[in-house]
Write a protein that binds this DNA or RNA. Structure first.
Lengths: 193, 193
DNA sequence: GTCTATAGATCGATAGAC
DNA sequence: GTCTATCGATCTATAGAC
């Protein structure tokens, strides 16, 4: 017997919630808003999720887990630091394009996580930033990058890829590949001639 | 008779509101929260402001007006395009450091502006981006910048300075000047050796 | 101009019928 | 598992005493 392809209703709720949270913020989105987007009464959703906080947690940790596991893979690649940095920039641009709403929520609404989950999320983010920073540090030590303040470099890179969330639309006349290339060129080679 | 130095209570409300909106978002901040921060009952603040939306509008348009008027000045300077770009990056870093809470609100909570004000704000932002983009375009035409996608360059620059809002603390062991220099170097010359 | 009290709307979440 | 109905809390804003 073929396994039933389960269109998990919880998953639908999480996806619509990410879109609404991105558009109106976690606090600005009511369970009634979300219900009408999902096609359900607010009360009915509680058969699939346990609370509004539950939704936020699922979205945020799904994103942070994805980033961290991908970083671990990139760290192990037998390539130059320049290529590792390129791979990371590519990762950010692609996650932003493929799962932009969830990434946006993890970037902007994580602060509404309840106490212990907030702590967990901050630690996950710190771990990610630490791994990323080490990669930059090693790249400088290896002579592949200019000597510079590692924190400034790290956050400049992380921020430079974040605007994709606010700006990118499929019909904008630029493909994901072109976008990655342009951003990488600016970050690696600079704007000046 | 000396003119009374007016410690405008409205101004205090706006400043505390910017801090709270930055920390908890516009929707996540209640008038009671704000009142207790200001040292007043929520109801009493309505003698100084007309609504919660009024507060948000004042903050957002104060910021957008500042950016636009400064851009107009920089446009008129008799210097190279590289120096104009440097002046703009400096402007962003300094406004972020000096008035970070308000800038943060204008960056993140403008979407809660009510209909007509939202329209106005979007137009102001578009005007700013247009002026900034033209500066990049002219710099490319003058041979000072690498030929590249102007929109990508614009938003990479704008984003690269935004993280300062999330990261900068006076005691972080880096001055505003060092910060500006580091960011300018990365954006103009790139990370690669 | 600040307060207490509260109107009126809306919030997250639950109870219980079906 | 979805609905209607509603609880109790909290929201913005106003009324009116002082």
């Amino acid at each position: 017997m073929a396994k039933k392809v389960k269109t998990n209703k919880r998953q639908v709720i999480l996806e619509e919630a990410a879109k609404l949270f991105k558009a109106k913020g976690f606090s600005g989105t009511s369970m009634r808003d979300l219900g009408s987007q999902v096609g359900m009464e607010a009360a009915s959703m509680y058969n699939h999720i346990s609370s509004k906080d539950d939704i936020l947690e699922s979205i945020c940790f799904h994103v942070s887990n994805t980033y961290i596991s991908q970083l671990r893979e990139i760290e192990q690649l037998p390539v130059s630091y320049v290529d590792k940095l390129k791979a990371l920039i590519q990762l950010h641009v692609r996650l932003m394009i493929e799962d932009g709403a969830a990434v946006s929520v993890a970037n902007n609404d994580w602060k509404y996580l309840s106490d212990d989950k907030l702590q967990q999320f901050k630690e996950a983010r710190k771990a990610y930033e630490k791994g990323f920073a080490e990669l930059i540090e090693q790249g400088i030590a290896a002579g592949e990058f200019q000597p510079m303040n590692v924190s400034v470099a790290l956050f400049t890179i992380l921020s430079a890829v974040r605007w994709v969330e606010l700006w990118y639309r499929p019909g904008r006349g630029i493909s994901a590949e072109e976008l990655e290339e342009n951003i990488m060129t600016i970050l690696l080679n600079g704007l000046a001639k």
